[in-house]
Design a protein around this nucleic acid. Structure first.
Lengths: 206, 206
DNA sequence: CCCTCAGGTTAACGAGCGCTAACGACCCTG
DNA sequence: CAGGGTCGTTAGCGCTCGTTAACCTGAGGG
């Protein structure tokens, strides 16, 4: 689509390179802690060359945060729709699908997950509201599924629980030494069990 | 101790005011997003007056982060020591005490909890290493208690689990609208159940 | 062969920020 | 009542950083 031949693996465009490196740097040292020269250097060009691709530093962060929020929400909705399309299987399976999808994000897009709940307040008002809306809708998708599975759980309790489980699932990107984790599959399985355990406990005694 | 009479409730010294407001502002807008003039204004003095109390802006963040890390570790060790002093009751009770103590921090010192895992990288090398050491020791206290209760749980799995439960417990300070929470007691009870459920699930199937 | 245009370059500007300097008001003590 | 220490003030310096301006280069097309 981009050049002429054999672009099967989609050679990353310069814009994508920049976004990727900016995400990594922002996650490592914070939005204000990274200069444009540094981002440029990370992709082999220098400083103001970035302005050929983005109107400003803010725009990079905005695109990153809006992008991941949209992908999370879209993924969640897709899984709910697939479940409904199958005629609605057991509610546990749907919750498992949501958990698994979120874990994939957390383990594979670690810088983005970090930015997602750390640098939101550095956005311009309009972008921040948009991201917050997407996040809220994503939470509501989960709340709906959780309450279908545990009808006894009050809505505000379900919301706090979902938020807490996000904190749980998003905890691994913050780890200082990622190499101390068990393998990817084992970590994913463990996180999955923890999340299910938390949900079960939320609905339990009360 | 400070002035002359009736300092029962410990009228906050200027230093403490500054730390309190700085913590709030840093948590709201990030370390680099807050200027010294703003911190000064928040306590009724202006800008460079802060330098009568702190050698620099970095020192405020360092004192905040070292302080909370020390208090968390100290609290954890105290509870373990109390338990040992009682001759070692049921292991569940000790874990419950740790959870309850951490929840108290998360709900009562929200800005500090936020800073604690968000702004660590803005510290000078020496301070950052110190905070990291304290955090690591705190995790180890939990890991020891968890493994006493669930001996089948491998050590690295226990560590990931403890980290994840911290993410879970620390999730409420990140909430956009804290007023949407149930009351403090209900929130604390819910978080407590979630944490216990996660630990139980960690030790469960696998 | 020239023109255009995408995608760079370096130089420099302007704003903001942390911090220092110099100074002043107040309170205590001898 | 002099003197000093505490705790402020305002002015301003120096540096960093995001952004803009002006210029350059190489590839594609009529």
């Amino acid at each position: 689509m981009s050049t002429h031949a054999a672009a099967r693996v989609a050679a990353p465009t310069r814009r994508e390179q920049i976004l990727r490196e900016a995400a990594r740097l922002f996650a490592e040292r914070g939005f204000h802690g990274v200069g444009v020269d540094e981002i440029g250097a990370a992709v082999g060009i220098s400083g103001p060359g970035l302005y050929r691709h983005f109107p400003g530093k803010d725009a990079m962060l905005a695109e990153l945060l809006v992008g991941i929020s949209e992908r999370l929400l879209e993924g969640g909705r897709l899984r709910v729709a697939e479940d409904a399309g199958r005629g609605g299987g057991p509610p546990e399976a749907l919750l498992d699908a949501l958990i698994e999808g979120h874990i994939d994000f957390a383990l594979d897009d670690r810088p983005l997950i970090t930015l997602h709940d750390r640098e939101l307040d550095r956005l311009r008002d309009t972008d921040r509201k948009r991201v917050r809306r997407l996040q809220r809708e994503y939470v509501e998708v989960w709340v709906g599924v959780v309450r279908a599975l545990y009808p006894s759980l009050a809505e505000n309790h379900a919301r706090v629980t979902v938020h807490a489980v996000f904190g749980l699932l998003n905890s691994t990107p913050h780890l200082a030494r990622p190499e101390a984790l068990p393998g990817r599959a084992a970590t994913a399985a463990l996180l999955h069990r923890l999340a299910r355990g938390a949900f079960a406990a939320a609905a339990g005694p009360s």
